[in-house]
Amino acid sequence: MKVERLLWLGASVLVFAGFIYLWQLICDYRWVSPVFLPGPDRAWQALMRGMTQGDLLVRWIATIERMIYGWLLASLAGICLGAVIGSSERARAYIGPTLELMRPLPASAVVPLAIALLGLSETMVLAVIAFGGLWPMLLATVHGFSAVEPRLYEVSRALGLSRTAVIFKIALPSSMPDILAGMRLSLTVALILAVIGEMLASRDGLGSHIMLAARAFRSPDLFAGVILLGVTGLMSAMLLGWFESWMLRWRESR
């Protein structure tokens, strides 16, 4: 079984390599103007040059830092607020509808407001990331808290647990799957908003890097940036996936 799985994975990697080769062929035969589409060779060269000589690495790290800070801020605020709202029936009745009203608002739509309030600053970018990442976290936590098996609450009442004990010993662990799903969604949103914030506020990072490269028609640099952003998205999703299965290892063992 395991061998078969590995063979399929190998074949799948080969198919992906085939697509890259096709991309190379398209560029070699100039089916698409090289102004728009550089071949993988030129994109790779630009990537390597930027990493070793230019400041691509510094920009990449700056983007990742922004994404992680904003995401941590959003996660922390989301879980705390969500725990308060989710653990009380009354709070849910009062605050829930407002949250539902705010939910479909695109996070990028608050960017103009954030710029007017905070200027084109680092704080603005972080605030937008945190605001955008907050909603998936908040809603997931509220949902997780309200979906806790009611008998667990009855047990905690019978045991005379305090409210903090209930939150930390019962509600948080049992809403962990929801919270982790929210964190994954929120991380995706954080990366997108970090890039948008950098583009708009011209903060040094991958977002401004690819925007400047596009304006100057330096397509290899542009694609190098896009590749790095793809890698960032892929790696963060994978890391969080591992973290999730590690945190939820109790679930499989049942």
Binding site: L9, S12, M199, F223
Partner: peptide, 18 residues
């Protein structure tokens, strides 16, 4: 599988300049 998993996480805004 690999192609989808590699292309999917590219943030859509990264393609904005493209």
């Amino acid at each position: 599988e690999v192609t989808v998993e590699v292309l999917r996480p590219i943030p859509s805004v990264a393609l904005l300049p493209v």
